[in-house]
Amino acid sequence: MVKKAFAFTLILGMGLLFYQLYRQRSTSTDLNKTARYYVENGPKETGSANVVTSVVVTYRGLDTLGEVTILFVAASIIGFFLKNQRNRKLEGAPGETSELLHTGSVFLVPLIFLLGVYVFVNGHLSPGGGFQGGAIIASGTVLLFLADPSIGAGRGVIHVLESFSGMLYVGLAVAGLFLAGGFLDNRIMPLGHFGTLLSAGAIPVIYSLIGLKVGAELSSILYALKDAKE
């Protein structure tokens, strides 16, 4: 009880902090100069119709690289951390899954994967992008696992994909140093015609790699968590 009272007091304190925080916020109705720059120059400089994408992949591309890294690190950690359990995978017989789920998955998984690919390939044009697409792909993986918990296939592919997309991503980023204005500059490829699929320089490529990478990382995390089950 004392603990809860304490906790409550602290929450009250935090509430006060929030109150003050909110009161100090800017209530301007205009874009600030950074946002204005992105909106005004983003499409021109990067060729990406989706300003958010231009920010995510190019202007703040280093964040995105970092974020991919975090996923990668998390996946690696969970990978080697839960590894010990892998051998025990076969001990408990996998439970029977419903026929419906199994059949459905055969039908749905490719579609889900396709949707994911669509989302990340079009990241520079429409809402969506690498992360969203990657997450969708991973949800396909979940479906696969649900349908057949003992599935082990594809892990190799995932790992190759994981590494490969990451390396390519870094490679493209470095290429920006030599071929264009700097690290992660998307103009190593022609900007193309604004608003089409093959525009915005390297953005779609990078976003696709991100999509693949995210999908692979999430799947690999799921793999590890799945195998860790007793």
């Binding site: 950074t34 720059y37 992105y38 120059n41 400089e45 190019t58 202007y59 703040r60 591309g61 280093l62 964040d63 920006g176 264009a180 204005g181 700097g182 690290f183 992660l184 500059d185 998307n186 103009r187």
Partner: peptide, 13 residues
Amino acid sequence: VVTTAGGRAPFVI
């Protein structure tokens, strides 16, 4: 100061 993405500070990292 090394800018990324070929842009200019402060708008790029």
